[in-house]
Simulated assay, not measured.
Amino acid sequence: MPVTDVITDPENLTMTVIADLAAPVERVWKAYSDPRQLERFWGPPGWPATFTAFDLVVGGRARYTMNGPRGEQSSGSWEFLSIDGPHGFEVLDSFVGDDGEPLDGFPSMRMTFGFAPSAEGTRMTNVSYFDSVEALEQVVAMGAVEGTRMAMSQLDAVLQDLRDYAQGKGTRLEVLDDTHVRITRLVDGPQELVWRAHNDPELMKQWLLGPDGWEMTECVVAARAGETYRNSWAPVGDGAGQAFGFEGEALLVDAPRRAVTTERMQGTEGPVTLNDLSLYEEDGATLITLLIEYPDAETRDMILATGMIDGMETSYARLEDLVLV
Results as ranks from 00 to 15, higher is better:
Val133Ser: 08
Val175Ser: 04
Val175Cys: 03
Met152Gln: 09
Thr148Lys: 09
Lys169Leu: 10
Ala157Leu: 10
Val140Glu: 11
Ala157Gln: 06
Ala141Gly: 15
Leu186Ala: 03
Glu137Trp: 14
Gln154Tyr: 05
Ala119Phe: 01
Glu134His: 08
Arg163Pro: 06
Ala141Val: 08
Asp161Met: 12
Asp131Tyr: 07
Ala141Cys: 12
Ser128Gln: 14
Leu186Tyr: 00
Leu173Glu: 01
Asn126Cys: 14
Leu159Pro: 12
Ala135Gln: 05
Met152Arg: 01
Arg163Asn: 13
Ser128Asn: 11
Val140Ser: 12
Glu134Lys: 02
Gly168Val: 12
Arg182Phe: 02
Gln167Leu: 10
Val145Met: 07
Glu134Thr: 04
Val158Met: 05
Val175Ile: 14
Phe130Gly: 08
Tyr129Val: 06
His180Gly: 03
Leu176Met: 04
Val139Gln: 02
Arg172Thr: 14
Thr148Gly: 11
Leu136Arg: 00
Ile183Met: 00
Gly143Pro: 11
Gly147Glu: 06
Glu120Arg: 14
Thr171Ala: 01
Asp177Met: 00
Val127Ile: 06
Arg149Ser: 05
Thr122Glu: 04
Phe130Asn: 02
Asn126Val: 15
Val139Thr: 13
Gly168Arg: 02
Met152Glu: 05
Asp161Asn: 15
Thr184Leu: 06
Ala144Tyr: 11
Leu162Glu: 03
Val175Glu: 11
His180Ile: 01
Asn126Tyr: 07
Asp161Gln: 14
Arg172Leu: 03
Gly170Glu: 04
Ser118Pro: 13
Glu174Met: 08
Ala135Leu: 04
Asn126Thr: 15
Arg185Glu: 01
Ala135Val: 02
Asp131Glu: 13
Leu136Glu: 07
Val158Ala: 09
Asp131His: 11
Val181Glu: 00
Ser153Phe: 10
Tyr129Pro: 04
Glu137Met: 08
Gln154Cys: 11
Arg172Met: 02
Phe130Ile: 03
Glu174Leu: 06
Leu159Ser: 10
Gln160Glu: 01
Asp177Asn: 15
Tyr165Glu: 00
Thr184Val: 13
Leu176Asn: 00
Ala141Asp: 15
Tyr129Gln: 07
Arg185Ile: 06
Glu137Tyr: 11
Val181Asn: 00
Arg163Tyr: 07
Glu134Met: 03
Val133Asp: 12
Tyr129Thr: 04
Arg149Asp: 10
Gln138Val: 03
Ser132Tyr: 03
Thr122Cys: 09
Glu146Gly: 08
Glu146His: 14
Val133Glu: 15
Asp161Tyr: 11
Phe130His: 14
Ala144Leu: 12
Thr122Ser: 08
Gly143Trp: 13
Val127Gln: 10
Asp164Lys: 13
Val139Arg: 01
Ile183Val: 15
Arg163Thr: 15
Thr125Glu: 15
Ala157Lys: 08
Thr125Ser: 13
Val133Ile: 08
Ser132Ala: 07
Asp178Leu: 05
Gln154Gly: 09
Glu137Val: 01
Phe130Leu: 07
Gly147His: 03
Gly143Tyr: 02
Leu159Thr: 15
Arg182Trp: 00
Leu136Met: 12
Ser118Phe: 03
Ser128Cys: 12
Met150Arg: 09
Asp131Gly: 14
Asp164Tyr: 08
Leu173Lys: 01
Val133Asn: 09
Gly121Asn: 09
Gln160Asn: 10
Ile183Asp: 05
Arg172Gly: 00
Gly168Pro: 03
His180Thr: 02
Arg149Thr: 02
Gly121Ser: 10
